[in-house]
Computed example of a mutant assay.
Amino acid sequence: MKKTIVGIDKIGFYVPQQYLAMEDLSDARHVALEKFTVGIGQDKMAVPEIYEDIVTMGANAAEQILSDQDKQDIDQIIFATESSFDLSKSAASYIHDLLEIQPFARSFEMKQACYSATAALQMAKDYVLLHPEAKVLVISSDISRYGLDSSGEVTQGAGALAFLVKAQPTILAIDDTNLAMTKSHYDFWRPIYMDKALVKGQYSTGIFLEFYQALLAEFQQRYPGVVEQSKAFLFHMPFTKIAQKALKLAQGMVSLDRVQEWTSHLETATLINRQVGNIYTGSLYMSLLSLLINDEKLDAGDKIAMFSYGSGAVAELFILEIQANFDMQVDSNLIIKMLENRKALSIADYERIYQTRLPQDGSDFLGKPEANYHGFYIKDIHNHQRTYGYQ
């Protein structure tokens, strides 16, 4: 009996249509530009408008990839985020409505800091293994906020990815070998009464690297030789420089040739991240997308090791395998055009947008997108209910 292979059949991506350049941020904050572009590894950060939220971004990412038949076949929607605006109603329920998915579908939201998109993909994979005819829509969507002139300001961002998970995928297969790890930490958290995250930056980086070393060592014991077969090694990237820090720790744990091979793919795997910033649950998968559309050395059958991390803290190491004709299945032109056509913001405009908030007291809101905006948007908020439109 032929083994059922499950993985990612389609990938959609959305980023807000405006950004702030690190040159402007460094000038305004009186910080040397190299601290941002080299020390952090960031060139631009995406800035969402007031009428954009995790639902609009997620719907915009998913709309690109779903056919009418997909909408009839999808029977599960999993929305991964740490930017939720409702403690009861899931963002997935809005997606189900906006994309007109057939009614007999399960829809829910998942949270565990930046890790939950990985949990969603693994859950989707397990579901399809049990139901080989099923399709699962996984969405990762987040808005990263740390505060104006804060130490984390440079690592803000916003964006969404959408994945269609099914049997016999055309882009990536999710391997059965994986290993997760959990240990309670206060390295990054956001209490319910706060709109900005609390973070212990250096401490969080240390926990990230500690988890990486521990998982890599244990993974090698449980699955000897598997990780060494990977052509690239990708990481959750709250800032792109952290991937370089992690790979240095792999020296002595795997062969030097393998570490050098992994390092050679880092530049292509960070290109999009450097242009967008931190998108929490989607940062690892934005790096994956960057690798797929920019790296010309990838071939069908190549394996990619993935290190997923979410503060609090949970991490997982797993393996993906590239499928035949994968490069024909990802719309690289659309993604490149989306990034290139964004509008540059001045510091004044960025700070104005940042300080403009949706009502926090239950009052009404009317969304008025600019004429050149294309996609889903918050149409209004009335009686504590969000209504979405499309332009």
Score class of each variant (00 low, 15 high):
residue 179 L to P: 02
residue 140 S to I: 07
residue 108 F to M: 08
residue 260 Q to F: 01
residue 362 G to M: 05
residue 356 T to N: 11
residue 352 R to D: 04
residue 295 D to I: 02
residue 380 D to M: 14
residue 42 Q to H: 07
residue 264 S to W: 05
residue 106 R to H: 11
residue 120 A to V: 04
residue 67 S to N: 06
residue 63 E to T: 09
residue 334 L to S: 13
residue 249 L to F: 07
residue 252 G to C: 05
residue 18 Q to H: 10
residue 225 G to L: 07
residue 79 F to G: 10
residue 237 M to E: 05
residue 146 Y to G: 02
residue 163 F to A: 01
residue 325 N to T: 07
residue 27 D to Y: 05
residue 183 K to Q: 14
residue 235 F to C: 13
residue 21 A to F: 08
residue 104 F to P: 00
residue 276 V to M: 10
residue 367 G to P: 11
residue 144 S to T: 14
residue 140 S to N: 11
residue 240 T to R: 10
residue 201 G to L: 00
residue 263 T to W: 01
residue 287 S to Y: 08
residue 274 R to T: 01
residue 42 Q to L: 05
residue 254 V to T: 12
residue 102 Q to R: 08
residue 191 P to M: 08
residue 204 S to D: 06
residue 70 D to V: 00
residue 138 V to D: 08
residue 375 G to T: 03
residue 295 D to L: 07
residue 226 V to E: 14
residue 63 E to M: 13
residue 272 I to K: 05
residue 239 F to S: 02
residue 354 Y to P: 03
residue 153 E to S: 02
residue 91 A to T: 08
residue 129 L to H: 09
residue 267 E to Y: 11
residue 164 L to Y: 01
residue 192 I to Y: 08
residue 326 F to M: 11
residue 332 S to I: 04
residue 266 L to M: 09
residue 45 M to W: 07
residue 252 G to P: 03
residue 88 S to T: 13
residue 90 S to D: 05
residue 250 A to Q: 06
residue 288 L to R: 10
residue 1 M to I: 09
residue 66 L to T: 04
residue 54 I to N: 11
residue 245 K to R: 14
residue 210 E to L: 12
residue 147 G to C: 06
residue 366 L to N: 04
residue 44 K to Q: 07
residue 348 A to D: 15
residue 136 V to K: 04
residue 343 K to R: 15
residue 105 A to R: 00
residue 107 S to K: 01
residue 317 L to T: 10
residue 89 K to T: 08
residue 185 H to L: 03
residue 152 G to L: 12
residue 137 L to V: 03
residue 131 H to L: 02
residue 246 A to D: 04
residue 114 C to V: 06
residue 231 K to F: 01
residue 288 L to T: 03
residue 296 E to W: 03
